[in-house]
Design a protein around this nucleic acid. Sequence first.
DNA 1: TATTGTTATACTCTATAACTATA
DNA 2: TATAGTTATAGAGTATAACAATA
Lengths: 145, 145
Amino acid sequence: MVAPHTPDPLLGLPGYALRRAANAMMSELAGLLAAIDLKISDASVLLLVQNRTDMTSSEIGKILDIQRANMVPLLARLETLGLIDRLPIDRKSQAIVLTQTGQTRLAQVQDITTRFEQDLMARIPAAHRPHFLPALHALTAKPAT
Amino acid sequence: MVAPHTPDPLLGLPGYALRRAANAMMSELAGLLAAIDLKISDASVLLLVQNRTDMTSSEIGKILDIQRANMVPLLARLETLGLIDRLPIDRKSQAIVLTQTGQTRLAQVQDITTRFEQDLMARIPAAHRPHFLPALHALTAKPAT
DNA sequence: TATTGTTATACTCTATAACTATA
DNA sequence: TATAGTTATAGAGTATAACAATA
């Protein structure tokens, strides 16, 4: 999915503009990560479990907003790729940890995402730039639900 | 999909924060629009074709970034709901226009979205607020691809 | 009793290829 | 030759229910 270059009368709506910006960002980042055979969700997991040996599948899912059931194929894929290992915590839970290969891949993820995030911010005019993350965080932290 | 209340170390990444904010916004808006039996894409089409009698399915798709093929079930649904009508432009193209029922439903969409967009902006601290839309537009308008 | 990991399944959204009829 | 509308289909991503084993 690529952003069109068609005039769009709905872009005045903040919610609509937010979705469009997120979609454009997601497809661009997905393209970059495809070069190292990872999806965005894969990369998120690698970034999340780095330097930790106590994160279970359920915890990862809660943080990344992925259902327990949907973590199964995701982690199975990372395991097949040799990027993660499972260490028993007790007889019920297991910690998801990076393998050596996983650490190497993580370094590539960090290269790509660091450069990408810098690129993203660079596209925002300097006057608006410092306000962007705080605004997003204000939207994500929803009021008393 | 609902936003979790779990600390999330990845929220420092602008791209990640952008996706999270967009997802939270989308699921909230989807919930509001469900009250009038519309999806976000349905509402987008109604908002887009208002006051126009010359928008074809293909054009709508280009603007909203929806494939021609995927417009078919979307418009079929709106037609079944009695919200749109198709007027022949020539023997190949047809204009998508609102029916009377469609105009009424559009008014409800505008009520919901106007209030929602105001709510969204109100959640952003005043100092950041005027910078939000310009920043999103800067991200959506991609550089020379 | 609640939670972890899992299976199975379904639904939505999106993407691609191909066809026809018309411009 | 290119475009509009369509069909069919496949792949993601996401959602729910249920189960066994364990806390």
